[in-house]
């Protein structure tokens, strides 16, 4: 696994808004294909590199030049961990929708939506906050990378 360099913290907030919109559309349409695409995106960011996040590139080229530069940087490790948490929820949701277990799809997608919106609107990274809890009760999931 490659190590990402620290990022401008406003980039992930921007991405989180887009993720929020995608997950809301999934809930409204029940499209498992869209959710599957989001799952792949979460997986790419979590397991390969944050550089594969297309919204990060949109942010860098379209949004960042319009903002006042900041020297603030955020470590990549918490972000990738959070993407991994999103991956698990989105995967469960995709399986739910695709197999006709719509209730499972709705519940898992709603949980992912809450996490994405918390990140976008409040800057709260749920996956990061839960790291110690996960570590305590599900050590396999939260092994350090």
């Amino acid at each position: 696994m490659s190590k990402d360099s620290p990022v401008d913290p406003r980039g992930p907030r921007f991405s989180a808004w887009i993720t929020t919109a995608i997950l809301a559309v999934v809930l409204l349409t029940g499209s498992w294909r869209l959710l599957a695409a989001q799952t792949v995106l979460f997986g790419l960011c979590a397991f390969i590199s944050l550089k594969l996040n297309p919204w990060g590139h949109v942010y860098r080229f379209a949004v960042q030049p319009r903002l006042t530069p900041t020297s603030e940087r955020e470590e990549a490790a918490p972000l990738r961990f959070a993407q991994g948490v999103g991956f698990v929820f989105a995967l469960v949701g995709t399986i739910g929708y695709a197999t006709g277990l719509t209730a499972l799809g709705v519940v898992a997608t709603s949980a992912a939506l809450v996490a994405a919106l918390l990140n976008a609107a409040l800057g709260l990274c749920l996956g990061c906050e839960m790291f110690l809890l996960l570590r305590r009760y599900a050590p396999v999931l939260a092994r350090p990378q």
Partner: peptide, 12 residues
């Protein structure tokens, strides 16, 4: 789905 979205917004 609409209720799920509204619920998520309320939780946040």
């Amino acid at each position: 789905g609409v209720w799920a979205v509204l619920g998520a917004v309320a939780v946040v």
